[in-house]
Design a protein around this nucleic acid. Structure first.
Lengths: 248, 248
DNA sequence: TCACCTCCTTGACCGGGATCATTGAGGTAT
DNA sequence: ATACCTCAATGATCCCGGTCAAGGAGGTGA
């Protein structure tokens, strides 16, 4: 018992240290992006630390009351919306520094479940506190507007992908986009591990799993990528980008 | 000349009268939704009146610098994004009270052109003024967050439509959604005029024009709707809704 | 009134990707 | 090891909706 208490204290301390915005390697991408050091402290003060989620655990479930948005700190998640009986739709993947839950503001409930694809840590940001802080900090407010606006833009891009692109182009886009997101986060844009299954990818891109498999095979023959299970090696990023943007 | 000047004054006066938020029949749907009367006046003060757009004229073009968001006052518009050479994509239709341009905040440029589908009037809301006003008026800020959040949610719904629904379901959804939007605005949910062409509808829904035509034909045979040119009569809204939501 | 648009409808055909079915491969508990 | 399970790859078949082609239909200007 005494040991447990000591552990708990030690754990809390290191957790606090690890998770202060001031020390966070993601701060140049995350919400506090535009803030001065002293403002970051204010922002930091409203953030709640969360125990890491294990693979498959949900951050929240569809329909849960909306209270907070979350910034991904490490790991990754998927957003899944269920309509009717068992017809799931993966509507987003979230990587570190990205904001989860913004689409719940309007109806004060989350419109989809968000599920960890691997061990994942997030920062919880109670929305009412964020809102009132954004009253005092115009930069924070601006950053919040920008985050939502960017998500809108990304959504439009996704719609274009879903309504106009072939299966090949969809996968090429998907890998290009992942590559770019990893690059921005300081990881290798050429070599990474997919945290989502083929089924998730297919569902997200509006394709059958079989199609995903087949096209990955084709991409390997064309020596665009090298895929082994969930390990991805991009061999020819330019060609992949070209594929992705090709006219029909 | 004198006559013209008199006309101009008269016109301006009536325009002012017509377009004050306090008198606007849309205020219960529009941005000032949550505001007290005196706050509405503040909000009203930052709004710029615009000359009506004629059919086919653009409110702004893709790539134009972002300065304002716009609230539709009457008429309707489409948002079109062009990528590469000539490959247009209709990403949205806007009806009265809806906000246009929110997806331009992030990159300070509009990601698509917005074009009037008929004679259309809009209220221009300079974003920097809106932002600073939102600092003083928490309700306005909340409403702005909600608007963006709602658009995110609608986008997710659209993605689901594009990636999982059959052509029939897409058109059923489209008509249901239009019907609902008209109802909320106090128009008949059963009988309305489409301001967009079949080509626009097809493009928006990710379908060929021919498919749109054929399915409209089928819907008429099934006595779900009655369509003559752009006049629509919904005969069986329940069945249409059922179609739209059907599992696969 | 006629020619000329643009928009819409309808028919015939074809292909990309879904679906169904089987096999392989990796991971884990017994 | 073995059995079991989930995930991925591959083959065979089918069908929805795209594409191509050819008319209507309505609107507009000379």
């Amino acid at each position: 018992m005494a040991v447990n208490a000591a552990n708990a204290v030690g754990k809390r301390r290191s957790l606090l240290h690890e998770t202060r915005c001031q020390n966070c390697s993601l701060s140049s991408l995350c919400l506090p992006l535009a803030l001065e050091l002293e403002d970051i402290e204010q922002f930091d003060a409203i953030i709640r630390r969360r125990a890491p989620l294990k693979k498959g655990e949900s951050l929240f479930r569809q329909g849960n009351a909306f209270n907070s948005v979350f910034a991904v700190r490490s790991g990754s998640l998927k957003q899944v919306t269920t309509e009717g009986s068992g017809d799931d739709q993966v509507t987003n993947f979230y990587l570190p520094s990205e904001l989860v839950g913004l689409d719940g503001i309007d109806e004060q409930a989350y419109p989809g479940s968000v599920i960890a694809l691997e061990t994942t840590t997030v920062c919880e940001i109670p929305f009412d506190r964020l809102d009132s802080l954004s009253e005092q900090l115009p930069e924070l407010r601006g950053q919040l507007y920008r985050s939502m606006s960017k998500e809108l833009r990304d959504d439009r891009r996704m719609m274009r992908l879903l309504s106009r692109k072939t299966a090949d182009q969809r996968l090429a886009s998907f890998f290009s986009s992942l590559s770019d997101r990893f690059r921005r986060r300081g990881y290798s844009p050429y070599s990474f591990r997919l945290s989502m299954s083929r089924a998730d990818i297919g569902n997200y891109l509006g394709l059958a799993v079989e199609t995903v498999s087949r096209i990955l095979g084709r991409f390997q023959q064309q020596e665009l990528v090298e895929v082994s299970g969930r390990e991805v090696n991009i061999l020819n990023l330019e060609a992949l980008l070209a594929q992705a943007q090709e006219e029909h």
